[in-house]
């Protein structure tokens, strides 16, 4: 467009004036911005909680899968020949990589060790009460159910116990909480969108003189939209920081402070917390900016 081409159309505002527009916008809309931040914080804290619960499942998996064995309790009546045949068959099984025999005495020792925290339980059980066992190490611990089916009911086998099955309630518990957290996060995300949508509408109304003048003097569409998108992104950033703080606090006070003493399982470490915090921050800023852009299509014609 002639010599006016010296001013390129895509040029955006300098940071200074843009920040001043942003600041007046946030201040003018303080209550609304606060509501948006609170909603986003809850949403992102739930998202982070879901991510940490998943990290916990992985942590337990990683810890247990190495150790999980299938225990074949032998009946007291089993003959040495039957036992050798059974062991031989197991060694031929491709799903099984290790077979270890434990006598009744060894089983009792292990029992005393596992339940050392509960002397009452140990006191009621003698070495003769527990069956001798074959402990099977599996090529893939997740295939334990097949082993249970194969060896249950064979001669001399009293029971086949899958240790992983004992953990099913724990897994179900963790999964349920994960799904719950993600669901709540989704609901809060919808609420956040509704609030951001309203925030943009109010903001577009409050700024209508400014935007009219910006259009008039030839500000690019990006420049006109930037303060709105940034306003929302700042709320997203604030929500993300608060949510990250909640996650850190939960790790310090709940996980390390409370659960660590109450469980025999390892708990997720700081790496998982930082990972979730980064995801939560990025999601907060990006989602808020995208939500604002969508709302702008409706409320601001440029």
């Amino acid at each position: 467009m002639g010599d006016a081409g010296a001013q390129r159309p895509g040029r955006l505002m300098r940071p200074g004036p843009l920040a001043s527009l942003l600041w007046t916008g946030l201040r003018r809309n303080l209550a609304m911005t606060g509501a948006v931040i609170v909603t986003i914080t809850i949403c992102l804290a739930m998202l982070g909680a879901g991510l940490l619960l998943r990290a916990q499942v992985h942590t337990i998996d990683g810890f247990l899968l190495d150790q999980i064995e299938v225990v074949v309790d032998l009946s007291d009546a089993i003959t040495p020949a039957e036992r050798s045949a059974l062991e031989a068959e197991m060694r031929r099984d491709p799903l099984i990589v290790g077979v270890r025999y434990e006598t009744k005495k060894q089983v009792y020792e292990r029992f005393r060790r596992d339940f050392r925290g509960s002397p009452d339980v140990v006191a009621g059980v003698g070495p003769e009460d527990l069956p001798a066992a074959l402990r099977l190490t599996l090529a893939d611990p997740r295939a334990s159910r097949d082993i249970v089916v194969t060896y249950t009911g064979l001669d001399g086998v009293e029971a086949v116990r899958d240790q992983r099955a004992l953990l099913d309630p724990l897994y179900r518990f963790l999964d349920a909480f994960t799904v719950g957290a993600f669901t709540l996060a989704a609901v809060q995300a919808l609420a956040s969108f509704a609030l951001i949508y309203t925030m943009i509408r109010i903001s577009a109304h409050a700024r209508r003189r400014e935007t009219a003048i910006m259009k008039l003097v030839g500000a690019s569409n990006g420049t006109i939209r930037a303060p709105f998108v940034l306003e929302s992104a700042v709320a997203g950033l604030a929500g993300g920081l608060l949510a990250a703080g909640v996650l850190v606090a939960a790790k310090i006070f709940l996980v390390d402070g409370q659960f660590a003493r109450q469980t025999m399982f390892p708990l997720f470490g700081w790496a998982a917390v930082w990972e979730s915090a980064v995801v939560v921050l990025a999601a907060g800023v990006l989602a808020a900016a995208v939500m604002a852009s969508i709302a702008l299509r409706r409320h601001l014609r440029v």
């Binding site: 467009m1 002639g2 006016a4 001013q7 259009k215 030839g218």
Partner: peptide
């Protein structure tokens, strides 16, 4: 300024408005 105004693509309209200034009866100051 040599441009068919109706054919300027939307994202180029700001460029047009930089070469066409405007004042109004009601001043429109901030």
């Amino acid at each position: 300024a040599g441009r068919d105004v109706a054919r300027i693509p939307d994202r180029r309209v700001p460029q047009l408005r930089r070469i066409v200034g405007c004042v109004f009866q009601d001043f429109r100051l901030l």
